[in-house]
């Protein structure tokens, strides 16, 4: 595999992992209007859950169960779902900005727990030496990355198809009803509180799934992976891609992550060596500028929400 192709495979693995998180957020915000500003917290729970279940046994750690990777990922998802259930029960009565503040705080607390609960998470040093699933079967890292890309892509497609079916079902229409007018939804005999909780848990489970996939690929996890910046990156992906559209979420994830990373490559190529230490600042400005421009010229995102009217009314 030539250099750029190998890099592209690597890039797409990470981008598609984030697209699963973005789809989870899209379900919450795009369809139901839940302002989850704690995305990274649930991503972290999925990642740490998987890492603890899949990791090798170590004397100083509680975890290290050495379970097979799929079992560990499912375990991570279950943990993320449980956390979402608890958080959801406590906070979902809050509206928009209050929910945002509460979830933001929870995500930071989760990161601090990861930093300080050394016996479980390894503290600041993280968990090392996590096995990468089926790594031994492949002769070269290039071939393995190709396999992992297919694996992540299949899961992303499955998630996409499942969400498309779900949001087009009567249940999915209910989500939009709750988002647009909760009182009206309640007057029709729907239970908005239950729907919000279901959506919150489901969306966070997807974030947990992505966390597990991330750990499987990187083979290491530390609190530094879960700084609040990631929440904003995911939000940027959703808004740029098009909130309320699952395809938009995927396009946004790939597009924004591409912008975020490849701008660095471009700058390091174009900038004279003497100015390289300024390259980082230029990159950050460029990222911000391009996101702002996208939003000015395509306020509904690259692929916005399509109008959904029941086919029976046409």
């Amino acid at each position: 595999m030539s250099g750029f192709a190998a890099y592209l495979v690597f890039f797409l693995i990470v981008a598609l992992t984030y697209s699963i998180v973005t789809m989870g957020l899209n379900l919450q915000w795009g369809y139901t209007g839940l302002f989850n500003a704690g995305v990274v917290g649930f991503f972290a729970i999925g990642a740490y859950g998987t890492a603890v279940l899949v990791g090798p046994d170590r004397a100083q750690l509680i975890g290290g169960f050495g379970l097979p990777f799929p079992v560990a990922v499912i375990g991570g998802m279950v943990l993320a779902a449980l956390a979402a259930l608890i958080v959801g029960l406590a906070t979902l009565r809050l509206r928009e900005e209050y929910l945002a503040i509460a979830t933001f705080g929870i995500a930071i607390s989760i990161q601090l727990v990861a930093l300080n609960f050394e016996a479980l998470t390894g503290g600041a040093q993280g968990l090392v030496g996590l096995p990468r699933p089926l790594f031994e079967l492949f002769g070269s890292p290039g071939a393995y990355n190709m396999f992992y890309l297919c694996f992540v892509a299949v899961i992303a497609i499955l998630v996409y198809v499942a969400l498309e079916v779900a949001v087009r079902s009567p249940w999915g229409r209910m989500l939009k009803a709750v988002r647009e007018d909760e009182t009206a939804a309640r007057s029709l005999g729907k239970n908005p509180a239950a729907i919000r909780l279901q959506v919150f848990v489901l969306g966070c489970t997807l974030m947990g799934l992505a966390g597990g996939l991330y750990v499987g690929f990187i083979g290491y996890v530390s609190p530094l992976d879960f700084l609040p910046i990631l929440t904003f990156q995911i939000w940027a992906m959703l808004i740029v891609g098009g909130s309320g559209n699952n395809l938009g979420a995927i396009v946004g994830a790939v597009g924004v992550w591409g912008l975020w990373t490849m701008s660095g490559l471009g700058i390091s190529r174009l900038l004279p060596v003497a100015y390289q230490s300024q390259g980082g600042a230029i990159q950050v400005i460029l990222i911000g500028l391009l996101i702002v421009l996208t939003l000015i010229f395509r306020p509904r995102g690259l692929i916005g929400e399509t109008e959904a009217v029941s086919r029976h009314t046409r």
Partner: peptide, 19 residues
């Protein structure tokens, strides 16, 4: 000498290293 920024984030740093 090619210097790349990791922005203090592992995900950005890993990507920069890969390129």
């Amino acid at each position: 000498y090619i210097l790349r920024d990791d922005q203090g984030s592992p995900n950005v740093g890993v990507d920069a290293a890969k390129t």
